[in-house]
Design a protein around this nucleic acid. Sequence first.
RNA 1: GCCAGCUUAGCUCAAUUGGCAGAGCAGCUGAUUUGUAAUCAGCAGGUUCAGGGUUCGAGUCCCUGAGCUGGCUCCA
Length: 583
Amino acid sequence: MSDNQTDLERMRHSTAHVMAAAVCRLYDDVQLDIGPATENGFYYDFDLPHRLTPEDFPRIEEEMNRIISEKIPFERLEFTRAEAEAKLREMGQTFKLERLAEIPEGETITFYRCGEFMDLCRGPHLEHTGQIKSFTLLSVAGSYFHGLETNPMLQRLYATGFLHPKELRQYLAQLEEAKKRDHRKLGRELDLFSMHEEVGAGLIHWHPRGARVRSIIEDFWRQEHYRAGYELLYTPHIGQANLWETSGHLGFYNESMYAPMDIDGKEYYLKPMNCPFHIQIYKTHKRSYRELPIKWAELGTVYRYEKAGVLHGLLRVRGFTQDDAHIYCTPEQMEAEFKKIMKFAITIWKAFGFSNITAYLATRPEKAVGEVERWEQATNALRDALESEGVPYEVDPGGGAFYGPKIDLKVKDAIGREWQVSTFQFDFNLPDRFDMTYIGEDGQAHRPYMIHRALLGSIERFFGILVEHYAGAFPLWLAPEQARVLPLTEKQMAYAETVAEALRAAGFRVTVDQRQEKVGAKIRQAQLDKIPYMLVLGPREEEQGQAALRSRTAGDLGAFGLPDIIERLSREVDSKGLDAENN
RNA sequence: GCCAGCUUAGCUCAAUUGGCAGAGCAGCUGAUUUGUAAUCAGCAGGUUCAGGGUUCGAGUCCCUGAGCUGGCUCCA
């Protein structure tokens, strides 16, 4: 497995060299940067006067195939630093000279030669180009040298390759599948949400069907929070400048905040976060250790400035609703509270059909506030919670915020893609800044621990992920329209209304297809609308007081009496579709 | 924000080298009364993203801007 992994990486990295070699053969004045293998393929960064477009891909691929058919050996060459520098100067490779300067003293400096193409490179490589079995160019994009905005922008060619052509076909099929599930496409097709140039980029409009799903998600979320001992809050959308000065946001978060508005001569800011408001509520009276832990949650809508180029459907927006919570507790309670958060998170994610969860534990960065012991204590609490819940995790050393360590959760969707969703974060900063206290057993004031917790992340983003996970075919409990009644002809219209009413009375979301269409057309429409159940009503059903039940996934199930149908659907709603087949 | 590409009817897409803006689906009207993924016919639908320019003539060429797409950076 790991051998295969290195083989694959080596092959991809070598293919990246072949791609760069092909580009050098085809175009003049190519400045090379780097061409690493990535999780799903590889890329090569270079700068050249010619602007690459997808129209150039066939030519480049053709040249690459020529290089592959030539079976050119990859030759490893060792150089001293001085030789390497001279060589790169001679080649006029300025980015490579910078890369060379970054190689630590004492490390062996190697070049790889492949025919006339030579590149400063750690390797390893294949023996010769003939060993490359499959590849395809995917896209071209800009990318800053070293990923730094202030650096020149290079052209990046994305491509992928696999050890076997069959795997490449599978990967391309998966890309196709992902395209079909794209929440932006499904959002339009299923009439869930939209965005409008007239309103502004990154601002979401929820249509009735999308809003219906959202309200089901939120109702479930509220119910589970009350059950888990949280109280819910509502707080304002704007707050005065001095609040954000105290919180520190105007200092370290300013770039993500919108310009202030003037109200009665005072500056007010749209909130990018909910925490300062929750803290205000905390501070409305003296808190006793007996009250702790305090667990407050809010579906809080925040606005953050995001650069125009990063906006992406529901996944990256400028106004969104966080499912935010703050937990204030004593040092002794911290660990137990954290375990509860983990357990709670897993329960909620499972309810939405995500059971494959992994975690990233981010520890203390160089620049940090709070004593080291508190960091250690908190980090251990995070680690213990992960271990006691058996959540697989990786450590991201130094990856925490300056104000506390954190855990990020990732979930895997139905087609194996990972999404960063939940985040649980200690905060050693805000309790200090707002001088939060509680009175301990000893009668003295103490600083509470504060934990930020977003479970679904943002409702918009979560909804986008959910749409892609289910490919728009929501399980019964979430479906905006759970059943559609399809009268065979106009003659069954009255009966259809009766059936729909009965189901509505039992709490289901039901419509009647009143169009004068053949039943085949009505079924087709319901299938395209991804309605979980269809109730076909002809003279037979009307006479028997029944309905022919059709499932979106299983097809015709036969005729049943209404009580049976209600019973069946109710059970499926209660189980959230988790013990049924996976849609 | 930066690099590249895209933007034509509600949606998906056509429109020779610059020469009369079109189709399917959806919508509306009518006919049809239908049994498990599309009944037929007719009608209507456009500032070709916005603004400017070149030209006898611009959907098509040039400039500016917006939005979107793929990335970089960032992150819920």
